[in-house]
Computed example of a mutant assay.
Amino acid sequence: MAILLAPMEGLLDFVLRDILTRVGGVDRCVSEFIRVSNTLLPDQVFIRVVPELLNGGRTFAGVPVAAQLLGSDPVCLAENAARLAALGPHGIDLNFGCPAKTVNRHGGGAALLDEPELLLAIVAAVRRAVPKTMPVSAKMRLGVHDDSRALECALALEGGGASELVVHARTRADAYRPPAYWERIADIRAVVNIPVVANGEIWNVQDALRCREESGCDSLMLGRGMVTNPGLALAIRAAMAGPDASPAPWGNVRPDSSLTTSPALYPIINWQVLLPFIAEFWRLVCARLDRRKQAGRLKQWLNFLRHHHPEAERAYMALRTLSEPAAIGQWLALQ
């Protein structure tokens, strides 16, 4: 089993990737998309979205990161993929799943699922443009308005040379509304001969177990569930390991370390364990993001966390009206 951390534009950026992979349990990450549109991007654009490229393509905790490209022009995507590959990501991922209207209106993301022949052309062009040792993967939804072409799209992506396929088990029209149709991922697995990763509506261990059963996938990609509960990947691993696995010691859990390679059974990450990670998140936000965005980023994460951690509700309410970094930092220091 592999657990992947999903790309989420405007939320799961390099800062939150850093923190969540320090918590542990994640095997691989995919960056949020880098939009490619009729130009060859300079290196600094790739590095701005994926600063892990300056760290051997890995997060601080040592978790490899694949860089994701979004676009619809095979030639332009191939040229950019070649330049990006030279910077050393742990793979090139292609976005055919984003449901955002602004993206789809310009012929990107899930809108391409109505054109399987273009999917094949894009993947094939990128595959030819990067070294043979560089993995090229793709993420898709089940379709645009319905899932009638899901198998055709999956076969096109495999035919173009994708080495792995992540399937978000909803259509573009479904957006993020539950449920996710995990059983349709099983249909895709039945027709392709490459690894398939299941994604969508995995909020807890029970969801993960049902998703694996219904999709037939060993590997999962976690998105909002991991943002809401940073201990989710560890909890899933504990469930998979079974009751006879040896528990991991809690004494070595710090924001500057990771449990990724520790034994398989982990206690629940409670609020007191999580607080140092939140403080480290805030430190990184202040060090690496524009001042005008800093307070909003912390509140954004707390807004997710309060759905799983009751204590996050108090933190969110206490910080909701604060915008000065000094005042926010002072509040966090007192926790």
Results as ranks from 00 to 15, higher is better:
Ala78Lys: 10
Trp182Lys: 08
Ala315His: 09
Leu120Pro: 03
Asp93Phe: 11
Arg210His: 06
Gly107Val: 14
Arg320Lys: 13
Ser215Gly: 07
Gly71Asp: 01
Leu4His: 11
Glu32Ile: 09
Ala245Phe: 02
Glu324Phe: 07
Met240Tyr: 01
Glu183Ala: 15
Ala82Tyr: 02
Leu302Met: 10
Asn270Val: 14
Val166Gln: 09
Gly161Thr: 11
Ala198Asn: 02
Asp187Gly: 05
Ala235Trp: 08
Gln44His: 14
Val26Asn: 01
Ala295Lys: 13
Ala238Val: 01
Ser148Ala: 12
Leu69Val: 06
Arg254Lys: 15
Ala81Ile: 12
Trp271Asn: 09
Val49Ala: 08
Gly251His: 12
Asn199Ile: 10
Thr21Trp: 07
Ala110Ile: 11
Val49Arg: 11
Leu40Val: 15
Val196Asn: 00
Ile268Phe: 07
Gln272Cys: 10
Gly223Ala: 15
Leu142Lys: 03
Leu151Asn: 03
Met134Gly: 02
Glu324Lys: 14
Met140Trp: 07
Val15Gly: 00
Arg141Trp: 04
Ala326Asn: 04
Gly225Ala: 13
Tyr181His: 15
Ala2Met: 11
Arg224Asp: 08
Ala279Pro: 00
Ala245Thr: 01
Ile185Thr: 08
Gln272Lys: 12
Leu155Glu: 12
Thr133Asp: 12
Ala279Gln: 15
Ala67Ser: 13
Phe281Ile: 06
Cys153Lys: 05
Glu183Trp: 12
Leu54Trp: 00
Leu289Cys: 13
Ala6His: 02
Gly10Asn: 01
Asp290Tyr: 09
Leu289His: 12
Asn55Ile: 03
Glu52Gly: 05
Val45Cys: 08
Pro178His: 11
Pro230Asp: 01
Gly57Asp: 02
Val197Pro: 00
Leu40His: 02
Ser72Cys: 13
Lys299Asn: 08
Asp256Met: 09
Gln300Leu: 15
Lys132Cys: 07
Lys101Cys: 00
Cys29Pro: 05
Phe46Val: 12
Ile3Ala: 00
Arg141Ala: 07
Pro89Lys: 06
Met221Arg: 01
Val65Asn: 02
Glu79Ile: 10
Arg22Glu: 02
Gly161Tyr: 03
Leu289Gln: 14
Ile92Gly: 02
Cys76Ala: 13
Thr102Gln: 08
Leu302Thr: 06
Gly62Val: 11
Ser323Gln: 12
Val23Tyr: 00
Asn80Leu: 13
Leu84Met: 09
Thr39Leu: 05
Arg291Ser: 13
Glu158His: 07
Trp301Asp: 03
Ala66Cys: 06
Glu214Gln: 14
Pro179Phe: 12
Cys211Ile: 03
Pro243Leu: 04
Trp203Ala: 09
Ile268Thr: 13
Arg22Cys: 10
Ile269Asp: 00
Ala318Thr: 15
Tyr266Pro: 01
Pro42Glu: 07
Arg297Gln: 15
Thr171His: 02
Ile194Cys: 01
Arg28Gln: 06
His145Phe: 04
Ala86His: 05
Pro255Ile: 10
Gln330Cys: 10
Ala66Lys: 05
Ala66Tyr: 06
Val205Lys: 04
Pro263His: 03
Leu220Phe: 03
Tyr316His: 14
Val45Tyr: 03
Asn38Tyr: 10
Glu79Arg: 15
Leu5Cys: 08
Leu77Thr: 10
Val45Met: 08
Asn38Trp: 10
Gly91Asn: 08
Glu183Phe: 03
Lys101Gln: 09
Asn303Gln: 13
Ala154Met: 06
Cys286Tyr: 08
Leu16Glu: 01
Gln335Arg: 11
Asp256Leu: 12
Arg291Trp: 09
Cys153His: 02
Asp290Cys: 12
Arg224Thr: 10
Arg141Ser: 11
Val196Gly: 00
Ala82Ser: 14
